[in-house]
Write a protein that binds this DNA or RNA. Sequence first.
DNA 1: CATGAATGAGAGTTCATTCAT
DNA 2: TATGAATGAACTCTCATTCAT
Lengths: 214, 214, 214, 214
Amino acid sequence: MQPGPPKFQRRKEDRPGEIALAALAVFSEKGFAAAKLDEIARRAGVSKGALYLYYETKEDIFHAVVKTAVAPDVAVLRARLEGFPGSFEELLAIFLPALAGILSVSPVAGIGKMVISEGRNFPELARYWHDELVAPMIGLVSGLIARAQERGEVRLGDPRLFAVQLVSPFLMALLWRETFVPVGAEPLGLSTLAAQHLAVMKGGLLTPANGSGS
Amino acid sequence: MQPGPPKFQRRKEDRPGEIALAALAVFSEKGFAAAKLDEIARRAGVSKGALYLYYETKEDIFHAVVKTAVAPDVAVLRARLEGFPGSFEELLAIFLPALAGILSVSPVAGIGKMVISEGRNFPELARYWHDELVAPMIGLVSGLIARAQERGEVRLGDPRLFAVQLVSPFLMALLWRETFVPVGAEPLGLSTLAAQHLAVMKGGLLTPANGSGS
Amino acid sequence: MQPGPPKFQRRKEDRPGEIALAALAVFSEKGFAAAKLDEIARRAGVSKGALYLYYETKEDIFHAVVKTAVAPDVAVLRARLEGFPGSFEELLAIFLPALAGILSVSPVAGIGKMVISEGRNFPELARYWHDELVAPMIGLVSGLIARAQERGEVRLGDPRLFAVQLVSPFLMALLWRETFVPVGAEPLGLSTLAAQHLAVMKGGLLTPANGSGS
Amino acid sequence: MQPGPPKFQRRKEDRPGEIALAALAVFSEKGFAAAKLDEIARRAGVSKGALYLYYETKEDIFHAVVKTAVAPDVAVLRARLEGFPGSFEELLAIFLPALAGILSVSPVAGIGKMVISEGRNFPELARYWHDELVAPMIGLVSGLIARAQERGEVRLGDPRLFAVQLVSPFLMALLWRETFVPVGAEPLGLSTLAAQHLAVMKGGLLTPANGSGS
DNA sequence: CATGAATGAGAGTTCATTCAT
DNA sequence: TATGAATGAACTCTCATTCAT
């Protein structure tokens, strides 16, 4: 049986991704409970019934959305940081702007907000995010800091808390953007923040021989 | 027949506060949409109908909860900071532990999570929080920094971003506590964080003559 | 124990009547189901709980209202009509304006609307009204007509339907006043209607010898 | 396993009409407030949720019901009456039985009762009925009477009140049927009433040359 | 595969009724 | 008696999920 003339049609294999993308937007804007499947379907360009061809339940879609797009970012950063040849100061100078860059384009802000919001309702997702994204990231940075401490580059102190100090301004900037900018607040420039944070961290984190001379 | 416990009590004075307290817990755990009035009523020890004796709608209860307990904290901090006689370094040494102390006992974490979660659904509340709590706080700290810069105590840079750097680790610690600790993550000790953050900020924020000698 | 100075206070024995009066207004405006006991209590100047000191249920109040103020009107008309000495033509000339006069000041319109509206929900009340007010009235008028027919004053025909023809314009005028005048319709003047209706009925109801000569 | 009757049918076309029909019955029996959507849905043979596929709110269903089936009756009568070639006496002889016939089969009685009952609660509907049905009908009949007066066929007097006299017995008959017949009252035969009313009106409404000779 | 009309459990809200005061 | 805070059943309306087409 020869194939008829190939009619244009969307590739079926993309449907789950298209749905997840639409769902990310809706969940991120409304939260889990207030998000309507009707709206997700409409934004995905499919019928409401079609959602159930690819996902079992609304919760299932939510899980898919949260778990999607997590791995790539971690992998990218891990690749850049692990085995970085230079000093910790040089590492910081690379890492902080890179983090700012990634965060400003990644959907991680929206998903992060969802995890914060719905963590109590979906502990499995909170655990997943902690185990897959947050803990590895913190662990990675902590490890780099610990090694830098061993080399005498970084002052004494809890590496995990140092890691928190390093990344928290960016977290705050993301939440600021999602929460207060829509109601009229002045945005926090991510790149300026990265530069200024780098300067302060170099001054405060590094030992005198390594940082204060810059 | 001996009288059992009375079927209900008349305590008009106390009810609104009790309801708001119960609602804070439920909203904070579940988010606005997933919170059931049934549960709020049960935790407040009243019937569902009684809620409507004191509040018009579910949204009204939510508003009451979000607007509650905002002013006190701001006022306390403003009183401590404004007109502080010492140097900025001394100010930091007071301010960071104080902030950590306040945050660890205030319901601000739960409410803040709600504002982050539901900001899009209730922009009025996001605006209220920004205008009443967040912007004043940031403005207060920024002002202190700017004056310290004029005195040559603090390095050059955007005071608003310095303020973000100062407070963001505590924001992150709160969200960490609310989101990841319940699923098994190691807590971030607020007081240890405050001490370490103070050390780093003194090293990185202050000018050499003022900070690096400590 | 000497009595203290006599404080002014409302006479308790009027309470049920005051409540029924307020209830008449509210039921008449809103219908049974949409009438709120809160509003009845407020208009009666008592608390909601006080209603239950005098009536068992909302339905009980409704019954009281419907059954109240029915008997007087019937009695007045019956007294005027029964044993009227003159001709039927003279009777009509008395009866129609009198009916118009009574209806324009009596609460019968409001109650009648309630009976029409709620007859299906409260058949007992429909039956009560029919038996106590409507059927006696129709019977009374029918009887007068029948006797006038026997005297050759009124044309042949079903006396009951003649009675309907006699009273129906006033019914319509009442319903018009209650229903359409509030939304801007021109009122139907009851006294003008009575005069014109009298003229037509004299021409159409009476036999030539009795009516057409007027 | 043989297939039982399908759990539900898709009949998008027919549903609104079926729902409105069921709603007419329920509203007419119970009044607006006492009518339960559950019962409307059950009588329409659909689920409660299905009502909301076709109507926005309960009030919306009520509006649809009240506005339904109004225009047709008016149009039919207007067509019959306007431009009627014969004398007013002949017109009456056609009009009154026709009115009786239409009213005895039309749902206008039930809807009219609803308008009377709920006019205060839904003034928009009272206005709609007045403007679309009642005022045009009264105006139509008044106009015919006025022209007949100009031709000397009808006695002097307010044409609008004459119109009321003409139609009110039928209104009363309808309300009688809806209100008192269900509790045991003798029905008022509409066709007999029409014939007798015709006779009386010919005698009382027409001028001697036109009416009294019949 | 795909649709969307239809379902039905469950939510927020109202209000007649009760009862501690 | 009188109050009105408190109750809880019942209502309207929503929306995740199903299924005839």
